[in-house]
């Protein structure tokens, strides 16, 4: 701060996401505001973030697990299903809210200079606040059926959480910035959100995809969300299986040694591209909104 007083500086030239770190207090207030405002006048409040995924889970479980009888071939199918659903929900909520965040905060952006990255980042935090209770429900369910994870598996959960948050931020920065110029961005994101549940092995098994895609299976694995969901299965679902239930091909070969690093790299690349695009477009946000 002291140096700012001493010299002439160009107003409004920030350092992107780094500035968000410097503005943690404001970030905290924005996240709190978002949560307060979202559940204003609702009786259940934050409870809604439990109810919605539970309903979603029940629908899939009844339709796929019971009607299509996927639960017969997949022991603890409920855990398999729920671990994927919560993760995908975290991603889709982050992405769709981050995409709208710049346009939604136009009143502020037009009048006061702030690091604009604050807004998409805040929405990802809000999604994380919704995600954590769901994760607790998942952990509770896992414990009931006898979950015995290794330290490595627990570490993987944390890593995947961070990876999905970064992926949501990166794509959110990209689509949020483009949304200022072309509101089509929101529609594209709606499509991504629709596709992503089905483009990862949330409801079905990865082996089914391999059978269908054969040698092209690696394309499916390039999707970071696919890898994220598979790692969640490895960390939550597999350790709940009893010795006689263990499936030989619970996770694709090379998941941790090859695909996880690949997914991490792709995620970082997405963040880089997102931030770069955002910074280039952010210069004119105030006048375009």
């Amino acid at each position: 701060m002291a140096s700012q007083v001493d010299q002439l500086v160009k107003p409004g030239s920030g350092r992107g996401l780094l500035d968000v770190y410097g503005d943690r207090f404001l970030l905290k207030l924005l996240v709190r505001k978002e949560i307060k405002v979202r559940y204003r006048g609702s009786v259940l409040g934050l409870m809604w973030s439990y109810v919605k995924p539970l309903v979603q889970f029940l629908i899939y479980f009844v339709a796929l697990g019971i009607f299509l009888n996927l639960q017969r071939g997949t022991p603890n199918y409920a855990i398999y299903l729920f671990s994927g659903i919560v993760l995908v929900n975290f991603f889709t909520e982050s992405l769709s809210n981050a995409t709208r965040s710049i346009v939604d905060n136009r009143d502020l952006i037009r009048k006061i200079y702030l690091p604009r990255e604050l807004f998409p980042v805040a929405t990802v935090w809000v999604s994380a606040v919704h995600f954590l209770p769901q994760l607790l429900v998942l952990v509770g369910a896992c414990l009931i059926v006898g979950w015995t994870p290794s330290v490595l598996q627990l570490a993987a959960v944390v890593l995947i959480f961070l990876m999905v948050a970064v992926l949501g931020t990166g794509l959110g920065l990209l689509f949020g910035a483009v949304n200022v110029y072309f509101r089509d961005s929101e529609n594209i994101v709606e499509m991504i959100v629709m596709v992503v549940t089905w483009a990862s092995p949330v409801l079905y098994l990865w082996t089914m995809v391999q059978e269908a895609m054969g040698q092209w299976f690696w394309i499916y694995q390039l999707n970071p969300m696919t890898v994220a969901v598979e790692v969640f299965h490895w960390a939550f679902w597999e350790p709940t299986l009893k010795a006689d239930q263990l499936v030989a091909d619970a996770t694709p070969p090379g998941l941790l040694t090859l695909w996880l690093p690949v997914a991490t790299l792709i995620t970082l690349a997405v963040l880089f591209v997102g931030q770069l695009t955002f910074r280039r477009l952010a210069v004119h946000f105030a006048q375009e909104l």
Partner: peptide
């Protein structure tokens, strides 16, 4: 700093 100039410079202390 809300808007950025298209030409010239603005600086503040």
């Amino acid at each position: 700093g809300v808007l950025q100039p298209d030409g010239g410079t603005v600086r503040t202390r």
